[in-house]
């Protein structure tokens, strides 16, 4: 084994935790509390996935994403989705321009999607057509306008927000688009202590003071390192079994699933679980994935990819409750 390479890698691994700590510390300057959300967002970004943030207005979703953009020193853009937003408003369009000689030329004017970090605010207010435009970009990291294909620079993340209470005039995200989000994080109302801190902080200034501590290349390097974290076949099988157990149509799924689940998560969920578990392990200072990592990440990975049926609603069980029960059942055969 080449000692020089080992030493280099060891250094990088040791820097990983430091970088994560720096990101968190900077974000704390602008965002009070929401530790789990911050962790989830960092995990998703390092893993290379998109995040859907759901929460009531004013809990700091947009502020978080903006601060994140500054901390990561990534070109950031914000798209406020409204019902009249067109796809070209997102992706950009060809425009006809007159040059200095008066000749008419067409050129592609890039849309706000051409950033490394995109905040898609209130995504569920846009029409399905506009949502589909987002879908292509989120999936393929490129925009096709006419015959031209325009690639998005890496790293590319979409952090979308949706407001759960405003159901009028919203278009629920289709399953295909939901599946593109690695995580769905529920931003809860801050605790009283956090709220006091928020009020105190904003009384002084509303400015966001977090500064850049990491760049895109470093994020890509972190992603590469995280992919090397070790995972045993047994834990891998556990993750897959967990996702399989969300499908009621499968004979092997547990009784809870058959009773409460309408449809289960896609194979992307299994990929997301494993990828994010590796990141989480490394963030926790470990070099191998543990069962607890899978269990902890099951909620943000699965909650938007599966749907509960009326029986669950009737029994006053939310999707997280059902996920919890499925985890318990799956653990029995561990």
């Amino acid at each position: 084994m080449n000692n020089i390479n080992v030493n280099k890698d060891l250094e990088k691994v040791s820097m990983f935790s430091e970088k994560v700590a720096k990101i968190k510390n900077e974000l704390k300057k602008d965002v009070v509390g929401q530790g789990e959300i911050i962790d989830g967002v960092i995990i998703a970004i390092v893993a290379g996935g998109n995040v859907l943030l759901e929460g009531v207005p004013g809990v700091g979703k947009t502020r978080l994403v903006r601060s994140l953009g500054r901390v990561l020193s990534l070109p950031f853009s914000r798209i406020q989705f409204t019902p009249d937003l067109m796809p070209s408003d997102v992706t950009g369009a060809n425009v006809v321009e007159k040059d200095e000689n008066g000749k008419l030329n067409t050129s592609f004017r890039k849309g706000p999607i051409f950033a490394n970090l995109v905040l898609a605010d209130e995504i569920n207010r846009a029409t399905p057509k506009t949502q589909s435009a987002m879908l292509e970009v989120m999936q393929e990291h490129k925009v096709t306008v006419g015959n031209d294909v325009h690639k998005i620079n890496e790293p590319f993340f979409v952090l979308a927000t949706e407001n759960p209470i405003e159901q009028d005039g919203t278009y629920p995200l289709p399953e295909a688009q939901m599946d593109r989000f690695m995580f769905k994080l529920i931003v809860n109302f801050p605790s009283d202590e956090d709220l006091i801190d928020i009020v105190k902080m904003t009384q002084k200034t509303m400015d966001e003071t977090a500064s850049a501590v990491i760049n895109g290349e470093e994020i890509l390097e972190m992603r590469r390192l995280a992919s090397e974290v070790l995972i045993t076949d047994e834990i891998l099988a556990y993750a897959i079994r967990l996702v399989s157990n969300t499908h009621p149509e499968l004979s092997k799924s547990c009784p809870v699933t058959k009773k409460y689940v309408k449809y289960g998560a896609s194979p992307r969920a299994a990929q997301a679980l494993v990828t994010c578990a590796k990141v989480k392990a490394l963030m926790d200072g470990r070099y191998n994935v543990a069962y607890d990592d899978i269990d902890a990440l099951a909620f943000p990975v699965l909650r938007h990819r599966m749907k509960v049926n009326f029986t669950a609603v009737n029994d006053k069980l939310g999707v997280d409750d059902v996920i919890s029960m499925i985890i318990k059942e799956t653990k029995k055969v561990r």
Partner: peptide, 9 residues
Amino acid sequence: KEGMQTSLE
């Protein structure tokens, strides 16, 4: 946290 079994595998 499953470290030993990972190392063994």
